[in-house]
Design a binder for these strands. Structure first.
Lengths: 397, 397
DNA sequence: CTGGATTATTTCTATTTCGAAAGAATTACG
DNA sequence: CGTAATTCTTTCGAAATAGAAATAATCCAG
């Protein structure tokens, strides 16, 4: 295969030769040994050997600093990663009042990270222009040629349909109906990938976090909203309209309070951090931020601890239902509530146990649900946005 | 490849040549054209052509009566199916007070079907012995050599762990903790496959029913219990302990009535047919059966219709949550309630719409959830049991 | 410090699979 | 009818892949 063909393998999603599959595995996992590549692709070791030789010849991959972590007996395995100079992936997170930027090379190293503040309820065109300027500039500063950008991943705070359209139910009302691919594609002139925030977080956990190598898990996010993502067979279940994993909008009480989504009694109304923070603020005599509240709870403030435990109790009810529906092997707790660690986890697990079908003690260890804190609880959907590009997930154009 | 090797392809799950993959596709789908096989396997048409020639030479496959359904322009495609004489699959459904038997050849034709009544709460050993005797005898009568039986699929009314163990939460209390593979394996001396009833129904719908070719859907069963199954990427999500899809045991009201599963306020308590039938029976002055109740509702009895609609309203609440969590493209309604057709479907869809996040009218048609009646609403998990064997799903030994 | 045990990697050849082109069976249309 | 268009199927040489055996790099035990 020619050098040019090999170097363009990063763009070609559909190619199905040994070389292409090796590149895809490296793109998804970072540094990997030849043996692992063989297992992941299902190809023979000899085939991998040949492919690696060719790819190395074309400077597409490099030998990685061997992570001698589990160094046993026998010849140690060499690790390979994509040549960092072979391309750059950009990520963009669109949140309530700012956009966050990130760039990573194809070997999974972060090159730069940056925030751009915007007014509340900013218009799509504003964000597109701000993103264009900031990305171009940051790339120039970091010495990244725009032509070497493989794609831009977008993380959005709300359901994103498979065609890139933002659903009404999003946090930022001005964006309802906007097609992210059509909005950002012309301005950025690079392939666009997009998914909702929680799905991005799940992908970040799969790529760098607490779910590396896990094919089936659920991410449950507790922050000022409640959301999540479902991963089955190694793929994020986005749902037919991109609304999979919207745990916050399970209707717990059809006669309950009105939710911003237009329904009543959603889980989010009781299980997000908002009610707890309201009460804590009243007691403190001044408005508390999310971080301050969590810090107080983690530090042992009995009031905040109890408020957090009550939140966990209510969230655990929803989580128990998710357990009855999906019976996942691993549930990762994300969102800033997870920063409280055990103070959240203990009452949450207790509540889960009380509300779910299969009880822990009557199940052999291998079939038990593990509930753990995610590695990136603090909104690191941004990392996931860049992983969208690395995994070629949610491609729009 | 030798004739013997080709003929044993049906037993070898792990083989990964063109011939093996062709056999597997035919086993899963029945009669298929060469072109479809190529698409399903991802192999080149020329490879399929060669493989088919070899398999035909070894009498493993036969040319099927060409189902000239969609006969367009151009040369018509020939269909192939596994040679019915190449093997037989048995299925077994273990219900409350009887076991049901079925046999089908590998081309998906049913050979015989039979019920064996047992006392309520029968013991496992009883069922094993009854199954052994009835299956052996029926096979002899039908001229099926026991050695030609590829495997026996078991459908069980309750969660079945991946290792074959029956969970406590099952309908038949005497079976809690029993390992289905260990119980049936020695007596039947054939490979055993097992899964819970609803998962089997889902597989039946995928193989013969309303979900042929659909990779992602949810089956929601409303009968004297409430249950279901989730299919993602063409695979049934069984969950880490086999309790995936247990929609009936979502906790709607933590302070509600006690459920047989040990929790309170489960969906099943309000959304199954039981409450409606109780009221209808009181009004009728005598106990009504499920079928009678459904017939009355379908025939236009206003009381029964309203009771059914109320049930649908309550079930729709649970279904709406499933919609928020999974956002599936297709929801099939199974169980005997589905026999009422539109009388159930209309209020169910209305309730779903009211309780789910993404509303129908604000979604383009391609992203809308379709809610339809399953093809086999009347407990045809039995068909699914035999499909377990055809699809090599849930293998225990 | 040396030889055996263990695991990783490459080499070489046989086999499998692919892609392009030819051939076959049918419908559409003049 | 006959020819063109369309679609399915097979053939055959080229390319990719797998499997077995050889080679390499390390640990471990004496």
């Amino acid at each position: 295969m020619s050098r040019d063909e090999l170097q363009s393998l990063l763009d070609d999603v559909n190619a199905d030769h040994a070389e292409a599959r090796v590149v895809r595995v490296l793109s998804e996992r970072g540094a990997v040994s030849a043996n692992e590549i063989a297992r992941a692709t299902g190809l023979a070791r000899s085939t991998i050997s040949q492919a690696l030789a060719e790819l190395r010849g074309a400077d597409v991959i490099v030998e990685a600093a061997s992570a001698d972590l589990a160094r046993g007996v026998g010849r140690p395995a060499a690790s390979f990663a994509l040549n960092p100079r072979a391309g750059t992936c950009l990520g963009l997170h669109l949140s309530l009042d700012e956009i966050k930027l990130i760039a990573a090379d194809v070997s999974h190293s972060v090159i730069f990270e940056k925030n751009v503040a915007l007014g509340r309820d900013y218009a799509p065109a504003e964000a597109v222009e701000a993103a264009r300027v900031a990305l171009r500039e940051s790339c120039r500063e970091a010495g990244v040629a725009w032509s070497s950008v493989i794609g831009v991943g977008l993380s959005f705070s709300g359901p994103v349909a498979p065609d890139g359209r933002v659903q009404r139910a999003s946090i930022i009302p001005t964006w309802a109906g906007v097609n992210l691919g059509e909005a950002f594609g012309p301005a950025l002139e690079r392939p666009i990938f997009a998914d909702n925030e929680s799905n991005c977080s799940a992908i970040a956990e799969m790529t760098w976090g607490a779910a590396i190598g896990v094919e089936d898990f659920v991410l449950f996010k507790i922050d000022i909203g409640v959301g999540g993502a479902i991963v089955a067979n190694g793929r994020v279940l986005t749902g037919i309209a991109g609304a999979g994993g919207e745990f916050g909008h399970m209707t717990l009480d059809p006669q309950g309070e009105l939710c911003r989504c237009g329904n009543r009694g959603c889980l989010e109304l009781t299980a997000s951090l908002n009610p707890a923070i309201s009460v804590a603020s009243r007691l403190a005599g001044r408005p508390l931020g999310v971080d301050e509240f969590i810090e107080r709870a983690a530090a042992g403030d009995v009031g905040c601890r109890r408020l957090l435990a009550d939140t966990a109790e209510r969230a655990g009810r929803g989580l128990g239902m998710i357990g009855a529906i999906l019976n996942p092997g691993l549930i990762l707790i994300g969102g800033r509530a997870a920063l409280a660690g055990e103070a959240l986890l203990r009452p949450l697990i207790a509540s889960y146990e009380r509300h779910t079908l299969i009880k822990r003690e009557e199940t052999p260890p291998a079939q038990r649900v593990r509930i753990e804190i995610a590695k990136y609880p603090r909104n690191h959907a941004l990392l996931g946005a860049v992983a969208l590009v690395l995994r070629r997930h949610g491609r729009l154009s």
